[in-house]
């Protein structure tokens, strides 16, 4: 128990002193997660919109498949992306393996399904009355779609934040695609795993506190945009 208390005190000290290793790892984690979330949002929102606003054969099956991919194990995504980016893989020539860019690719693959699915759910939650009201007030079909997306923006924002939370907290892709290289691809989750195994509890706890704090902040933001967007 004393060890934990002492570790916690040291961890807080590392954070407050802006320890260079802690700052660097945190900054890299945020940069990679924000980049992958931005790219995934750019992919997921249009695809979610296309699926929602168009009726086609097998639509239900596509939505079911996307929902199944929500719970895709991160190590499975890591394995598939590793094979694709490895030297002998189809995208090996890009040289992305063991780079932050490769980690962005992996995280984008990981979080896109959940963001597409939640975008569809957000748009479905708006209901047909909004579309009818928009059209009956003279909106074109495209303007009506813009109105529906505007009405769903709180839920879509929550989808993006949830994607960010998953990207930041995953460890499989970061470890397998990034390789946990110090000063290059080491992020919060992989650093925690490594430092714990090396017995560096204080640094692990400091990074853990930061990770949990960011996750908590993201959750607070999700609750805010879902329940209380306007006030």
């Amino acid at each position: 128990m004393d060890e934990i208390t002492a570790g916690l005190a040291k961890a807080v000290e590392l954070i407050l002193a802006l320890d260079p290793a802690v700052v660097e790892i945190t900054a890299r984690s945020l940069a990679i997660a924000i980049t992958s979330t931005t790219i995934a949002a750019g992919i997921a929102v249009p695809i979610g919109g296309l699926i929602h606003f168009h009726n086609f054969r097998g639509k239900r099956a596509v939505v079911n498949l996307i929902q199944t991919l929500y719970s895709l194990p991160t190590v499975t995504v890591g394995l598939v992306v590793f094979l694709l980016l490895s030297r002998s893989g189809p995208f090996g020539s890009l040289g992305l393996l063991f780079t932050p860019a490769g980690m962005v690719v992996g995280q984008t693959v990981l979080i896109s399904p959940i963001m597409i699915g939640l975008t569809i759910a957000a748009l479905s939650g708006v209901g047909p009355a909004v579309r009818d009201s928009a059209l009956s007030l003279g909106a074109s079909r495209f303007q009506a779609i813009q109105t529906i997306m505007g009405e769903a923006k709180a839920a879509m924002m929550a989808a993006v934040l949830l994607g960010f939370g998953r990207a930041l907290s995953e460890v499989g892709v970061a470890m397998m695609i990034g390789g946990n290289i110090r000063g290059h691809t080491r992020v919060l989750t992989t650093a925690i795993a490594l430092e714990t195994s090396r017995g560096e509890i204080e640094l692990s706890m400091a990074l853990g506190i930061i990770l949990v704090s960011i996750s908590l902040l993201v959750n607070l933001l999700v609750n805010r945009v879902q329940g209380n967007w306007w006030t």
């Binding site: 209901g127 009355a129 909004v130 009818d132 009201s133 009956s136 007030l137 109105t147 505007g150 967007w229």
Partner: peptide
């Protein structure tokens, strides 16, 4: 565009 309808249960946009 030359018509407008008011529904029984109005949907006021957010």
């Amino acid at each position: 565009r030359r018509m407008a309808m008011v529904f029984q249960k109005p949907t006021i946009f957010n």
